[in-house]
Design a protein around this nucleic acid. Structure first.
Length: 429
RNA sequence: GGGGGGUUUCCCGAGCGGUCAAAGGGGUCAGACUGUAAAUCUGAUGGCAAUGCCUUCACAGGUUCGAAUCCUGUACCCCCCA
C-alpha cells in the first residue's frame, strides 16, 4: 500500500461533494492510517451501478493505506432511509432482507482487500441493534439527539413541507440508527470517518454530533456527488431497468455494452468517478475525445476497466469476445465453438427443435421468444420497419418463417432488433 | 361538519353520448444520418387466431340501440368555508 494524498486525489476527480473541514481532514488522514466506513442498504439482492462510487471510495482509501469497513444495513434496511425519497417506503420482509444482506456482503467483497495491515471488514448493523431494547436505546442514544436539529435536516424538512403524507415516526427515526452505527463502529474498531453519497450528508453529520455528545470525540465525514448524466438523469438506468453488478442480473456483455455506449459528454466524468486510472491517462483520453472522437477510446477504456473490476478478467474477456463477434465478424463464419462460448454471455433462450420443422417458426414468434419484442404486435412493427435481423441479415417480410436452414450453425440462431440489441435462440431436443 | 374540483392508455395531459383504442407532448421502439456518440429528421406505439374480434378511460351498479363521456353508490386525492 503506497501512501498518497487521498484528499488531493479525490479532489481532482471531482469526488468531494461535502466534507468536514477539508484541510484538516487531509492532514488528519496524512498523519497515520485511519479507519473509515460506508453503509449500503440491502434493498435488493444485488448492488447496482449507483453503489459503485461509494464502493470505489472505500477501495481508494484502502489503497492509500486506510482501513475500510463496509457496513450492510440489516437493521437500517428494516426501517428505510427517507433521504432523497419523496414518499414513505414500503417495509421489506425480514426473510428478503436477510437474503439480501448475505448476497450484498458477498458481492462487496470483490472490491476490497481482506488481507494485510489495512484488511477490510464487513459488518451488519443488525448484529448490534438486534439486542437493543427500545427503552435502552432511548435512554442511551435518544437522549443525546435534539429533535430541533433533526427537524432542520434537509431530508426531514423537505418531507415535512409536503402536505401529502409527510413522514412516519419510523422513517424519522432512521437517522438515529445510522448515527448510532457510527458511534458503535468508533467503539468497536476506532472508526472515525464516514463516507457516502451526497444524500447521506444529513445522516453523517448526525453521527458526528452523536459521537461528540456520547463519547466526546471528533468524527469526520465526506460525501461524493451522485453520478448523473449530462441531461440530469441517473447513470446506470437502462430501458429495461437498473444496471446491476451481479452477472445473473446483468450479463457481463450487457454491462460492457452499457459503458461502450456512454455519451461523450458523460465519459470524462465516468472515467474520473469510476476508474482508478491515473490523472495523466484520463487527461490523455479527454484529449483523444476532442481530437479523434470516432475512436471512442474513452468508452472502450471505461468499459474495459469497469467490466474487469466488476466481473473479473474472464467476464471482460467474454464481453469483449461477444462484442467483437457481433460488431465485427460475419455471423456465418462463426464456428460452433465460438457461438457456444458467447452463448452464455448474451441474452439467450431455448426452444424445442421441432418448432423449426414443417412450415417453420414465424419470425414474429422468434423475436418474442428471444425477448427482443414484448408482443407480436411489436415484433411485427419492428420487422415492417426494417429492424429485424437473423444472423445479421435483414428480414423484412412480416410473415417470414425460420427453418433449419436459417441456423447459424448446428443449433443456434442470432437474432437482432435494431442496430445493437442482440439475442440468441438455441434449438434443442 | 358544509361546499367545490379531480381520478384517462408507460408518464403528463386533451376528450365530456356515437365518427374513441381515445388529440398533443414526453418516454420507448424502429428507420435515415453517424463514431455501437450527441443533435436532428421520419415512422410506429393496447392485445390477438387481424378487412374482424377482445381488453382499456379509479371501482361497483344503472340509464341508453350505443357511455371515457349521463345517473347512483364506493374508494382515494385536491381546494375553499367552519
Amino acid at each position: 500500500m503506497q501512501d498518497m494524498d487521498i484528499i488531493g486525489e479525490l479532489s481532482w476527480r471531482g469526488l468531494i461533494h461535502q466534507s468536514t473541514d477539508q484541510e484538516h481532514l487531509a492532514r488528519w488522514l496524512d498523519e497515520r492510517p485511519r479507519t473509515l466506513y460506508a453503509g449500503f442498504d440491502p434493498t435488493s439482492e444485488s448492488l447496482h451501478v449507483g453503489n459503485l462510487i461509494p464502493l470505489l471510495l472505500l477501495r481508494r482509501f484502502q489503497r492509500a493505506g486506510h482501513t475500510p469497513i463496509l457496513l450492510v444495513g440489516g437493521a437500517t434496511g428494516m426501517i428505510g432511509d427517507p433521504s432523497g425519497k419523496s414518499e414513505e417506503r414500503n417495509l421489506l420482509a425480514v426473510e428478503t432482507l436477510e437474503a439480501n444482506v448475505a448476497s450484498v456482503r458477498e458481492q462487496a467483497q470483490t472490491f476490497l482487500d481482506f488481507d494485510g495491515s489495512a484488511a477490510a471488514r464487513v459488518v451488519n448493523n443488525h448484529d448490534w441493534m438486534r439486542g437493543y431494547s427500545y427503552l435502552e436505546f432511548l435512554r442511551a442514544v435518544g437522549k443525546n439527539v435534539p429533535v430541533n436539529v433533526m427537524l432542520a435536516k434537509d431530508s426531514v424538512r423537505s418531507r415535512l413541507e409536503r402536505d401529502d403524507g409527510g413522514l412516519s415516526y419510523t422513517e424519522f427515526s432512521y437517522m438515529l440508527l445510522q448515527a448510532y452505527d457510527f458511534v458503535q463502529l468508533y467503539d468497536d474498531y476506532g472508526c472515525e470517518l464516514q463516507v457516502g453519497g451526497s444524500d447521506q450528508w444529513g445522516n453523517i453529520t448526525a453521527g458526528i454530533d452523536l459521537g461528540r455528545r456520547m463519547r466526546g470525540v471528533q468524527l469526520y465525514g465526506l460525501t461524493c456527488p451522485l453520478l448523473i448524466k449530462a441531461d440530469g438523469s441517473k447513470m446506470g438506468k437502462t430501458e429495461s431497468g437498473t444496471l446491476w453488478l451481479s452477472a445473473e442480473r446483468t450479463s457481463p456483455y450487457a454491462f460492457y455494452q452499457y459503458w461502450i455506449n456512454v455519451e461523450d459528454a458523460d465519459a470524462g466524468r465516468c472515467l474520473r468517478f469510476l476508474t482508478e486510472l491515473p490523472r495523466e491517462e484520463i487527461e490523455a483520453l479527454d484529449q483523444s475525445r476532442t481530437d479523434e472522437p470516432e475512436k471512442r477510446n474513452s468508452q472502450r477504456k471505461l468499459a474495459a476497466e469497469l467490466t474487469q473490476l466488476v466481473h473479473g478478467a474472464s467476464g471482460l474477456a467474454a464481453a469483449e469476445r461477444a462484442t467483437a463477434i457481433f460488431f465485427g465478424a460475419e455471423i456465418e463464419d462463426l464456428s460452433e465453438r465460438e457461438l457456444a462460448e458467447i452463448f452464455a454471455d448474451v441474452p439467450s433462450h431455448e426452444l424445442p427443435r421441432e418448432t423449426l420443422g414443417g412450415e417453420g417458426l414465424p419470425l414474429v414468434d422468434a423475436l418474442v421468444s428471444a425477448g427482443l419484442a414484448k408482443s407480436k404486435g411489436e415484433a411485427r412493427r419492428t420487422i415492417t420497419q426494417g429492424g429485424a435481423y437473423v444472423n445479421n441479415r435483414r428480414l423484412g417480410e412480416v410473415d417470414a418463417r425460420l427453418q433449419a436452414s436459417d441456423l447459424a450453425n448446428e443449433s443456434v440462431m442470432v437474432l437482432r432488433s435494431g442496430k445493437k440489441r442482440y439475442a440468441l435462440l438455441r434449438f434443442v431436443g
